[in-house]
């Protein structure tokens, strides 16, 4: 797997990072090294092995479909954001 400037720019886009040129250059070598390391998994024979995505032994934990009291109310949550307008979160223009 070739890791180059283009790969890093693509990953930065997926990750929502506005990288500087210096960061991009540095990340090419860092990510190349990390991908080199994790690629050693190729050596491991996993034929016929089922994947494990979680180690929790339970499935389908159901609860009644009811609204429970919440710890934080609307005012407390809006107080965490930088800018509000009419009880809404304000952000720069979308389009």
């Amino acid at each position: 797997m070739e890791v180059n400037q283009e790969t890093i720019q693509h990953l930065a886009k997926l990750s929502n990072f506005a990288l500087t040129d210096g960061e991009t250059t540095r990340l090419v070598s860092d990510i190349k090294e990390i991908v080199g390391y994790i690629s050693q998994l190729d050596e491991l024979n996993t034929d016929g092995v089922e994947p494990t995505y979680q180690v929790f032994e339970m499935e389908n934990v159901w609860r009644p479909d009811e609204i429970l009291p919440q710890e934080a109310d609307r005012e407390q949550l809006l107080a965490l954001t930088k800018e509000t307008l009419n009880y809404q979160i304000k952000v720069p223009k979308v389009l």
Binding site: S15, F17, A18, E23, L27, I38
Partner: peptide, 17 residues
């Protein structure tokens, strides 16, 4: 995100993606 995360956060997020 670029200003707020540390370099190691960025590496891990990018490796994840």
């Amino acid at each position: 995100r670029n200003e707020g995360f540390m370099p190691e956060n960025k590496r891990r997020i990018m490796i994840g993606n």
